[in-house]
Design a protein around this nucleic acid. Structure first.
Lengths: 138, 138
DNA sequence: AATTAAATTGTAATCATTACAACTTAGAAT
DNA sequence: ATTCTAAGTTGTAATGATTACAATTTAATT
């Protein structure tokens, strides 16, 4: 379901994205953490291991990966862009209590919009909000 | 399909939102312009007629209307919250060429997520991106 | 090893939104 | 109608995410 790291590296090479130490670290973090982190979360997590890392580089890398279609930006909430490396069709659920964002599977092809017959649709997004089971128990 | 202005006024009264001149102007603008404007667009449009209007008031009004469930905020793009007064079930399409956002009808009840059986879902959002017919012709 | 275009970094700028405190007003009570 | 008070308005300043930029460093090719 998820691409192997090697596949990703090949994809990056094809798209002429240089594999710097910093970029590999950001990629590794996204692969290991499917929690839809913000740029800030990524920066804070990596800064311990890579003290020279700058936040600009995190943004730069994320923008490059988005342009290369390797990660998707999520704009569920204003002023907090999250990043997702999962490429299979899925929706997102955000818990309004704890703030966690989780994936759920959904058939986007089945989502038809008759009003948009003459429109060229390149991107479909679905997100739900509510309360997750963990927070419902409390 | 759209509430009459009188219905809205009643709803506002019920929710203890005072009907100041400024707020009525913002409401009127949203009712007359279903183009999903940003706070800035609303401010610029109204500033001619109401020179004393401040941008803070526009934000304040929009936040009050959102809290009262009279308008919905759209976060399709990062750093640009748009506002929508249409309350019927619908999705949004954003043209990546001209930037326009249009509504389209969609049955949100039919959108099932089996992965979220134990989740309480309070809000469903669907937005598509692509190119609108006008821009396809050019 | 030399070259060069691309990546990295820190700082400063930008832009949407919010915080705040002084002033004004809507709507209720008298 | 007048008074009262909580809520709304305003301008300015603060915040916080993201980008611009210019100097330095590096990846990968010649």
């Amino acid at each position: 379901m998820n691409s192997s790291i090697k596949d990703l590296l090949d994809e990056l090479k094809n798209k002429n994205i240089r594999l710097s130490h910093q970029r590999l670290k950001v990629l590794e973090y996204l692969i290991l953490n499917h929690c839809h982190p913000t740029a800030d979360q990524i920066y804070n997590a990596l800064h311990k291991d890579v003290p020279t890392l700058s936040k600009t580089t995190v943004y730069n890398t994320l923008n490059a990966l988005v342009k290369a279609n390797i990660v998707r930006p999520l704009n569920i909430e204003n002023a907090e862009t999250r990043y997702d490396i999962n490429t299979f069709d899925h929706g997102h659920f955000k818990c309004e209590s704890c703030g966690d964002v989780v994936d759920f599977s959904i058939n986007l092809d089945a989502l038809k919009a008759n009003d948009l017959n003459n429109y060229e649709i390149t991107d479909k997004n679905v997100y739900f909000k509510g309360i997750c089971p963990k927070c419902l128990q409390i």
